[in-house]
Design a protein around this nucleic acid. Structure first.
Lengths: 328, 328
DNA sequence: CGCCGCTATGACAACGTTGTCGGGAGCCGG
DNA sequence: CCGGCTCCCGACAACGTTGTCATAGCGGCG
């Protein structure tokens, strides 16, 4: 900036005025300054500006499990869009479901003075955020609530969704319905399992521990679980898959089996309608999840200081075929 | 920081020393300072630190077309991973294929003094980056080269890939092969069209303008194009789809047609193997694209000042069924 | 006992920017 | 001719941090 000032023959304060479109600069002077800026390729240092003004850094942080997962990438895009409307940039980070990594990312973001944080929690301990929140950084949790801090939270109707999936399957005559869930450390996995039990109870199915498998959604694990669930004297005739990864792995594992069970997946996914059979899912508006969370965050940044809100977005069962297998 | 100093009964400089693990602080003093830091929830302001030290901001910028597209989200994840290994955070932004938006994002990133930029170019003019690059911000272009600046670039073998797709289809007897490409303003679309023509020439097929449709990859457009290509007196019997979006839309449009053409898509995508028929694609290592680009960038940051490199990653045809329809 | 050197600490300036304030030049009216 | 006003502009401090340098205290050694 001082280079620009020297070249234009003015003080740096005048350069600052021009850069900020402040009034009270002679047009001719402004022109000289702009020419100097152009010539030197000057770009204002936003960091220094924020330091001096004590103002917003114009960034928000987004922490999720894995951007490569289409569910989260949709969410990322939605957040980015709202951020753009509010003139903010987005710092993203994948936690890989590791609480320590989530924590490191969040604290790094805070050290960079993000205006706010959007977090898909990887664990249940978020006390580390308390000082930051007290210092004025709003935090919104997405998809899962935090274990031990009160803050805005946006969820989908996990319980209602899986319960509905069970009801749907039971209405086609299934009595042996299995549940394939993510690791029991994950909130949504536990909630969906709860919904599953609730659905069983309502449909008058006997809940059977042997029909539940919880674990990380890798291809081999899902395939092995399915082999077990579909064998034995009293095999499952229908499966509820607990999230998009598990559903996809299940579809792949079942592709060449003659005795395919009925299948309903949680989370919609691209091409579900083109598989054979098309996959019935409990769908929700993923983009809305991100959008609502981001809008809550920006509401806080705009001064909304009402008590923390918990928003639960509805789900709906999309019947496509894989879940409508009538038990003979 | 001065609050911490006051509480610990030391000067801010000593606090700074403690925060930075500098030697020469009495253990007892350090302990008092750490206690004060803990009590006040103090977190160092990285912005101020970078300002003073004139050092790296510890962030890199990534600009691509749309994170929600699985191709780009894979790429994002790969970049993030490399960045993490180098202790950097990633600022992301979607350009939506609009040059102005790409430019705004890039300049915002530069104003925030990112250490480097990774860009999937949305247009052909990148002169706006010259001052930044001269000022020392390394830039690496991914997936497409920049129009008018020389910089590191990582591409996939677009020409070889489509040429191979045509060769493959021709080997099954197809003579009327169509090409469905993205908008002609996009580098990869043009390159892949070139590869298509080259493939036609090598396979002894007559190149026919009527068999080429270029345009934005929306569902309706792709469906309409396919209707046209597959009708008339001399319809196409095989189709090369120019990218993952187009392939997916094509699969959907063709799903319920009796006269399905053979299909080869560019870019692999999840579930391609489970569709009916499984989709033959020209695959490449998307994560490697991001990884190599990011590594090039960090190489520059580590002082590599060799001439700009252009890396072209190989592709390979994955035959799954949709492309192996022998013409009767 | 005086000087050296080492340890632990603080005062100060500077990073790039902007808010505050003060002042010079020009103009007007009295 | 002078007071006051407006228009432009610059000097200076401050944001939170760290590099440089100075210094007080203290033990050891000749």
């Amino acid at each position: 900036m001082s280079d620009v000032a020297r070249l234009a023959g003015v003080s740096i304060k005048t350069v600052s005025r021009v850069v900020n479109d402040e009034p009270g600069v002679h047009p001719g002077t402004a022109e000289r300054v702009l020419a100097a800026i152009e010539q030197l390729g000057f770009r204002r240092n936003v960091g220094a500006r924020n330091l001096r003004r004590g103002s917003s850094t114009g960034t928000v942080g987004l922490i999720l499990e894995d951007v490569a997962n289409p569910f989260y990438s949709l969410l990322t895009r939605a957040v980015e869009e709202v951020a753009r409307q509010h003139g903010r940039l987005v710092l993203t980070g994948s936690s890989d479901e590791e609480p320590a990594r989530e924590r490191d990312l969040a604290l790094e973001f805070c050290a960079r003075r993000v205006d706010g944080l959007l977090i898909v929690p990887a664990g249940l301990q978020h006390g580390y955020l308390v000082p930051e929140m007290r210092a004025g950084t709003p935090v919104v949790f997405l998809d899962r609530p935090a274990g031990d801090v009160v803050a805005d939270t946006v969820l989908v109707d996990n319980i209602g969704g899986t319960a509905e999936a069970v009801r749907h399957l039971a209405s086609f005559g299934h009595r042996r319905v299995a549940f394939l869930g993510d690791s029991p450390g994950i909130y949504t996995a536990v909630e969906r399992l709860r919904g599953f039990r609730e659905g069983c109870a309502r449909a008058g199915l006997r809940y059977d521990d042997d029909l539940v498998v919880m674990g990380p959604p890798d291809e081999r694990g899902v395939a092995a679980a399915l082999r077990r669930l579909l064998s034995g004297p009293d095999p499952a005739t229908a499966v509820v898959a607990g999230n998009n990864r598990i559903t996809v792995h299940a579809v792949r594992a079942l592709a060449h089996r003659p005795d395919r069970p009925a299948l309903v997946g949680f989370d919609d996914f691209e091409l579900a309608d083109l598989l054979d059979p098309p996959v019935t899912v409990v769908a929700h508006d993923t983009a809305a999840l991100g959008r609502v969370a981001a809008e809550l965050l920006f509401g806080r940044l705009d001064g909304d200081s009402s008590p923390p809100r918990r928003v639960v977005l509805p789900v709906r069962l999309v019947a496509r075929g894989s879940g409508e297998v009538r038990l003979s």
